[in-house]
Amino acid sequence: MTDIRASSETLLDTRAPVKRDYTQYIRWLLLFGGGLLMIMPITYMLSTSFKWPHEVYNLNLIPEEPTLDNYIHVLEDGRFFRWFINSLIIAVITTISNVLFDSLVGYTLCKFKFRGRYIIFIAILSTLMIPTEMLVIPWYLMSQSFGWLDSYWGIMFPGLMTAFGTFLMKQFFETVPDDFIEAARIDGLNELQIWWTVAMPLVKPALSALAIFVFLGNWTAFIWPLIVTNSQELYTLPVGLTTFSVEQQVEWELIMTGAALATIPTLIVFLIFQRYIIRGVVMAGLKG
């Protein structure tokens, strides 16, 4: 606490007459442009979701006759609800699985010295270089032989653990001092208990970040769920939404409405975990 106060005071003291720095305006302008670029699609998504079909190709931001019809239509359509639940189940399970197993493997690679540890780590890392698009066909063949096509398991299995998550957790466990682990060992905890009660709470910020990444990734995943599912009941939300377009014509207003509704869980997840991330950063900053 005192540190922060002291440093802010010195900041005030050294506030010499500020020279007008014009590069600053350019920086702001660039940031403003970037922000605009990000916000445009979202704005259009929202705006379109309140438009009547005939107005969709009209690029005005404010609908002439705003309507909730699309929302009613989408929410009354049982399929939307089904897809929403499908996506939720898949995203939640993969998130939990990643948080548990990525950190277990990351912890093992970080805190245990065993033969082949480095090779395993490199092998895991190297899979990061292979793009999903290349893996889709092997995954498909595998699912086919195991009979996993058109099932939740089939959709989920490629994402239950990720190399990125394992790498992230390994790096974060490096910040947990070995003393902490050895002290717990002396106090009689077994290795699993040490991982869970000592190491995991200390890497909460990383777990939050991982949870956000994995949840968003799976919530918005498109290619693999599209390929592995056949029946409409198993579609995830992103896959399902596209079916709004295949019948006769593209129904943009409905797609946009679905998409708008689909952002809600991601916002909730982000709001929940973001708090932990910020708190983690603050805690680390205040530690003696």
Partner: peptide
């Protein structure tokens, strides 16, 4: 039947 005190205390911040 031992207990150890470490240089960096090893007390848990959480």
């Amino acid at each position: 039947d031992i207990a150890m005190v470490f240089q960096n205390y090893a007390i848990y911040p959480h």
